[in-house]
Design a protein around this nucleic acid. Structure first.
Lengths: 224, 224
DNA sequence: GTCTATAGCATGATAGAC
DNA sequence: GTCTATCATGCTATAGAC
């Protein structure tokens, strides 16, 4: 339930050599290149050659930083997790009432998803890849827990500490929001019919607000 | 909104030669073999050789029936769509009240998902593959529309005809259920924590019943 | 730290006997 | 309709100069 601050078995061998200024930059370029190539073509056509080309480095350079394609892909997923928080904070107005925050948060998420369609596809593909990769399943879990933790905090505070009860309720809310957004992403991709999917967003907003209502009154009637 | 009875551009070249009794059987074996191999290893490691081995045929035989790996994979996805209806009807008790049907249906779906974890992963991977494959996006749409149509009918009837209003409400319900189930699948896979995911199922049941309530009263107050 | 060059191999697909 | 044998290609990864 709370394996978010996991021991986190370090990614097997992401080399990260001397860590020169230049080295760090190149490593980042390769990760960005991999994400670009993944967004444009999908996992099926993703090769180390395309990644290297997309990053503007030679194939051997790629292997200097990542000893295998697998570890590079896992590093890309890690990077996506790290970037997530920044992305949402941008265009979100922040009401003080948690119920309105839920609504603002879902709408913000959905705007972000729609303007980064291919990135979402890429992230979904990478998550499935991690689930299929022996010893990398924890990465998928970490990704989800990071999202859950992030949404949970955003529902109740700017980013401060939470009471135990807020954490419990917020986690349930966050989980449900995430379920809805993931389902919406897939359905929107498959039907590429934004009109109908927007109905789904409205329904999700209402359902999540109702859930908060329910959890709060349950907590009020039967505290501890 | 209703491109379910699509012209359906025929799958480019699934050959299907003379269609001998034996030929049809072999074709089916290859499709089953592909699904098996996909379930056990994922798209990343899925090769025509593994498929052939898993189907008990030689590599050349596979290419006699499917002129390319791509068309084989799309045929597998088609097959999954066709099998879907059978799978759910099995263990579902069928109350007469639509609200209770929604609950029974969601629980039945969830049971099915849990006992076919790898099949669901495979189907998700194939759907993403179709979305990435030029000219195959319609297959993903067909898959979703088939599910939506199926759930819609199940909410209101055994399988008979629907009134226009039932169809409209049922479609919205079905879409939302599907959003929830897809999201639940991904979250359950990533966190592999069935206890917490079951909470999500309960929440989805309540939310979907509420949605039906809302749609019905809206229709009652403002018909046509 | 980045490159050129290449090893070593697995892949999707085909030719042609039976 | 199914097989054996093989092709051509593209893959990941490495060796070694600079």
């Amino acid at each position: 339930m709370d394996d978010n601050d996991q021991p986190a078995p370090p990614l097997p061998s992401t080399r990260t050599p001397g860590a020169t200024r230049k080295g760090v930059e190149t490593r980042a370029r390769i990760i960005r290149g991999a994400l670009e190539a993944l967004e444009s073509g999908g996992m099926e056509t993703l090769t180390t050659r395309k990644i290297a080309a997309s990053a503007g480095v030679k194939l051997a350079t790629l292997h200097y930083y990542f000893d295998s394609k697998e570890n590079l892909l896992l590093a890309v997923l890690e990077d996506l997790i790290a970037d997530m928080a920044e992305a949402y904070r941008q265009d979100m107005s922040m009401p003080s009432d948690p119920e309105e925050r839920i609504e603002a948060l879902i709408r913000s998420m959905w705007r972000y998803v729609q303007r980064t369609r291919n990135k979402q596809l890429a992230q979904t593909e990478l998550t499935l890849y991690a689930l299929r990769t022996q010893g990398a399943e924890w990465l998928a879990a970490r990704q989800y827990n990071a999202y859950i933790d992030f949404y949970c905090r955003l529902v109740f505070h700017g980013m401060g500490e939470l009471t135990e009860e807020q954490r419990k309720i917020g986690t349930a809310i966050a989980r449900f929001m995430l379920i809805g957004i993931d389902g919406l992403i897939l359905q929107n991709f498959a039907l590429h019919n934004n009109g109908d999917t927007n109905e789904g967003v409205e329904t999700l907003v209402i359902a999540t607000r109702d859930l908060l209502h329910r959890l709060r009154s349950e907590a009020g009637i039967q505290p501890g």
